[in-house]
Design a protein around this nucleic acid. Sequence first.
DNA 1: CAGCCGTGGCA
DNA 2: TTGCCAAGGCT
Length: 303
Amino acid sequence: MGGMLAADTDQALPSPADLSGRLLPWFDAHHRTELPWRRPGTTAWGVLVSEVMSQQTQVARAAPVWEAWMARWPTPADLAAAPTADVLREWGRMGYPRRALRLQECARIVATEHGGVVPADPAELEKLPGIGVYTAAAVAVFHYGRRHAVVDTNVRRVVARLGGQSDAGTATTKADLAAAESLLPEDAPTAARVSVALMELGALVCKARAPECGTCPVSGLCGFSGQEVPAGPSRKRQKYKGTNRHVRGEVMALLRDAEGPVERARIDAVWPDRRMLDEAVAQLITEGLIGTDEAGRFELPSR
DNA sequence: CAGCCGTGGCA
DNA sequence: TTGCCAAGGCT
């Protein structure tokens, strides 16, 4: 599309009817039933928690944390009332602990401003901290059955390949959302199932590095079917070892595992570069991920 | 909008 | 072993 010459690999996307006809029977037969948040009776809050935990963390790692988390704090009010230190410890080693902080803020807002009821409207959900375009759509569609495009990295890749490209761009664009929306049938419950199924297809079959076109239910509709995935990273990757994030991770790990407040000398032992350490500690305090007691020792925030 | 924010599974 | 890649969001 667009004014420039289209790549010769571009291909029209399938019609909603054609896609649904292939995709939904496949989903019914092959989707993962073991994901705990897919159990009947999971609340809207439970779905929201599962989506936040799954942001940039593999669902297999999020699942056991979700189980313990929901058993301990079943409702937004429960999480809102918890000490933040407990929340960060339960989050464990899932990474990006700011997500845990924002999830608790989310719980406080839902509990106090929404009467404990998770909004069903994507625009309303997006106002909550840590809830972006993807997560808002996921809650609205997966729990409330709305007809709305749900575009994560899996769906971007599936839609790109259906259109003949080897992979999607670096970020979700309006065009991505429009393309995904164009694949949805009119009927909302069916559209919601198509959205789930597109994600599942990306996770199980249309995988980033090794797509299994031979067993793909929509290979007959796909412009990329059977082609080789180009070698090398699909986009620029960030370093971790030796970076600020690494330092932050070490400090957080120390405080998570500590019994009580920690002396600065023990913090100093986790990283040799004093400048980097000072910077990381200052950031963590500013962001509310760690705090200090009256004696100047460090600890996870009590509230 | 490009860069930043953790951590671990897996090929 | 090393490095890609994860149900993204925020600034």
